[in-house]
Nucleic acid binder design. Structure first.
Lengths: 103, 103
DNA sequence: CGGATATATGATTGAGTGATCATATAATAG
DNA sequence: CTATTATATGATCACTCAATCATATATCCG
């Protein structure tokens, strides 16, 4: 089986600023939409769409409680991936500093 | 500093089927374009564009040797990220099987 | 029931993306 | 110098995506 598309879909879901902000915010645990969209500074509507997308992709849990709907990270691996991306970013930035100083 | 866009850019670079195929192929080490595009079954032109994008994003090295241009993964973390995505995928697939069996 | 709150969804729009074809550039061999 | 090989790039096109506004749905409270 070729898993390329499935794996790309997961990584693509993480590679978008608004979704990444949501994921950062969900690190501390489950949150409802009404907490998420003010925290990340996006419209309720837009936030809802991104949350739905990430549930479809399989990286978020959804739980209903009364009127509120709570979302949470479904896999610890998601945080690890984001942390590794941060490491790469840091290396790139310091690497460029080194180049700038040398020039 | 808000690093959201930078981190998203890195993850986005990985979240595309053609680029993911390239990254899989580069696990074994440095390869030139003439080796890469037949291996992944894409056009030379298209392959070149994706390689350039990944160099700009800072996840690939480029080295010139005569007429050939070699590309290589620039960070070990890239392989780790892809492996973690594979783990998530596997958990999702087996999880769905379990649900199907229970139904 | 009627109003308020929380979330989702339809429609639209502008921007971005990936692939393709044709062509340009660069390096090397003969 | 010319032909060949390797790679990059311009132009184009269909498609996808993110954001927004307006509205629908659902739950709860009084």
């Amino acid at each position: 089986m070729d898993t390329t598309h499935f794996r790309a879909e997961i990584l693509k879901a993480l590679g978008q600023p608004t979704r990444l902000k949501i994921i950062d915010f969900l690190r501390d645990g489950e949150r409802c939409v009404c907490e998420i969209f003010p925290a990340i500074g996006e419209e309720q509507s837009n936030t809802s769409r991104h949350l739905n997308l990430m549930v479809s992709t399989g990286i978020l849990f959804r739980r209903k409680e009364g009127v509120k709907i709570f979302y949470a990270l479904k896999h610890m691996e998601i945080m690890e991936i984001v942390d590794l991306a941060t490491q790469i970013m840091t290396q790139e930035i310091t690497g460029r500093h080194r180049l700038l100083k040398a020039a």
